Deep mutational scan, measured.
Amino acid sequence: QTVQFNGLEYHFPNPEEAEKFAKKVAKELGGEVRVKDGRWQID
């Protein structure tokens, strides 16, 4: 599972970890999490 933001990609072994990370980062950055092409993106 991949999380993308600021032009970087973070890879996680399972979707739960990816989701948790994506939501944490979005909260800290005040961004929005969305899934695109099977990847988590933070904008």
Rank of each mutant, 00 (worst) to 15 (best):
D43T: 14
G7Y: 04
W40A: 01
D37K: 05
G30T: 04
K27E: 11
Q1L: 12
G38Y: 02
K24S: 09
A18S: 01
D37R: 04
H11L: 07
Q41E: 12
Q1M: 12
K23F: 12
G31R: 09
V35M: 14
E16V: 09
Q1D: 09
L29P: 02
T2W: 14
P15W: 12
N14E: 04
E17A: 11
K20C: 15
E16Q: 10
E17L: 09
K27M: 12
W40Q: 02
V3R: 01
Q4T: 14
V35I: 13
N6P: 00
K36T: 10
E32K: 11
V33L: 11
E17C: 14
V33P: 08
F5V: 13
K20V: 09
Q4S: 14
P13A: 11
G7V: 02
P15C: 14
G38H: 04
Y10D: 00
P13T: 12
A22N: 01
K23T: 08
W40K: 01
E17D: 10
K36V: 14
D43G: 08
Q41W: 15
P13Q: 11
G7S: 05
R34Y: 14
A18Y: 02
Q1W: 15
W40T: 03
P13K: 11
P15N: 08
A26N: 03
E17Q: 08
L8A: 10
H11Y: 12
V25C: 15
A26Y: 04
Q1I: 10
E32M: 11
K27S: 10
E28A: 12
G30S: 06
V35Q: 09
K36H: 11
L8K: 14
N14G: 06
F12W: 01
K24E: 09
V35F: 15
E17V: 05
K20E: 10
E19R: 08
Q4M: 14
E19W: 12
K36E: 11
G31T: 09
F5C: 11
K20P: 01
K27W: 11
I42K: 02
Q41M: 14
F12N: 00
A18E: 00
E16C: 14
E28N: 07
E17R: 04
Y10S: 00
G30H: 07
L8Q: 13
L8S: 08
K24H: 10
P13L: 10
W40D: 02
R39C: 14
R39H: 10
K23D: 05
K23S: 07
A18N: 00
E28H: 11
G30D: 06
Q41Y: 15
F5M: 06
K24C: 15
F21E: 01
T2C: 15
L29E: 05
Q1V: 11
N6H: 10
E32C: 15
V3E: 00
V3P: 00
D43V: 15
G31N: 04
R34K: 11
G31C: 15
G7Q: 05
Q1K: 11
N6W: 11
K24W: 13
E9R: 10
L29R: 06
A26H: 04
V25I: 14
D43E: 12
A22W: 05
V33H: 03
N14R: 05
R39K: 14
E28F: 12
N14Y: 04
N6M: 13
Y10E: 01
K23G: 04
L8Y: 12
K20F: 09
G7D: 05
G31K: 08
P15A: 13
Y10H: 04
E16R: 08
L29Y: 13
G31P: 01
F12K: 00
G30M: 06
F21W: 13
Q4F: 15
K24F: 10
I42D: 02
K24A: 12
V35C: 15
K23W: 12
N6V: 03
K27L: 12
Y10V: 06
R34G: 05
K36P: 03
H11N: 07
A18L: 02
Y10W: 12
E16I: 09
Y10A: 02
K36G: 05
F12I: 01
V35R: 07
G38E: 03
N14P: 00
P13N: 12
V35H: 11
G7F: 04
K24P: 00
N6Y: 08
V3F: 06
F21Q: 00
F12M: 02
A22G: 01
Q1S: 14
E19L: 11
E28K: 10
G7L: 04
F12C: 14
G7M: 05
G38N: 08
K27A: 13
E32L: 12
V33W: 08
G38L: 03
Y10L: 07
G30Y: 05
E17P: 00
Q4D: 07
A22P: 00
N6Q: 09
Q41T: 14
E16F: 11
I42G: 03
V25E: 01
V3A: 02
G38C: 13
Y10I: 08
F12H: 00
H11C: 15
V33A: 14
G31D: 03
L8M: 13
Q41F: 15
Q41G: 05
E19V: 05
V33F: 08
N14W: 03
V35W: 15
Y10C: 14
N6E: 06
K20R: 12
N6D: 10
T2V: 14
H11K: 08
V25D: 00
R34D: 05
G31E: 05
G38M: 03
I42S: 02
E28W: 14
R34L: 09
F5A: 04
D37H: 06
K23Y: 14
P13D: 13
E19G: 04
K27P: 02
A26C: 13
Q4K: 10
G38T: 03
R39S: 07
P13V: 09
R39A: 09
K24Q: 11
A22L: 05
V3G: 01
G30F: 06
P13S: 12
Q41H: 13
L8V: 13
A22K: 03
R34Q: 09
D37T: 03
G31F: 13
F21R: 00
T2I: 15
G30W: 05
E28Y: 13
V25W: 13
V3M: 03
V33K: 02
A26M: 06
E9F: 13
N14H: 05
Q1N: 14
N6C: 15
L29S: 10
H11G: 04
D37W: 02
